[in-house]
């Protein structure tokens, strides 16, 4: 089975690099970047199944970045992470409510894995 190819975007380098390493240990091909600009460059060169985005980043927020990435890669699935609030808040405050998965930092790696699988499954079921 083809391994998942995931792009991690978070302005906290230490966090995102470690998370990528942990995912790699679980057989996930995870690239990481620390800004929206780098992410946009990255998808020019590589095709990703899924992006894990930090909601709150300087200059361009995770939600805005998701829109940009979705425009370029309509098949890409998304998972949001944030250290600023609950999932309920996210759904209440975002028009992305119901359309994306969400994780609260500190992230449980197993939960992330589950949600990534679920997101990909959901993407594959979509016509």
């Amino acid at each position: 089975m083809k391994p998942m190819h995931v792009l991690l975007v978070d302005d906290e380098k230490e966090f995102v690099s470690t998370l990528a390493e942990r995912l790699a240990l679980r057989g996930v091909e995870a690239d990481w970047v620390t800004s929206a600009a780098e992410a946009l460059r990255k998808i020019e060169a590589t095709q990703y199944d899924l992006a894990v985005l930090d909601v709150k980043m300087p200059h361009v927020s995770g939600i805005e970045l998701k829109r940009m990435l979705h425009t370029r890669c309509p098949d890409m699935q998304f998972i949001f992470m944030t250290g600023h609030g609950s999932e309920q808040d996210f759904h209440a405050g975002s028009s992305e409510a119901g359309a994306a998965y969400y994780l609260v930092k500190p992230v449980h790696i197993e939960e992330l894995m589950r949600k990534m699988s679920a997101a990909l499954d959901q993407g594959q079921q979509r016509p």
Binding site: E12, E14, T18, L19, R22, G83, K105, P106, V107, I109
Partner: peptide, 17 residues
């Protein structure tokens, strides 16, 4: 929360390894 997330990930990585 952010440093806490880093600690969590680093510790998680240690455990993974």
């Amino acid at each position: 929360n952010n440093p806490l997330a880093i600690i969590g990930e680093k510790a998680g990585l240690m455990k993974d390894i």
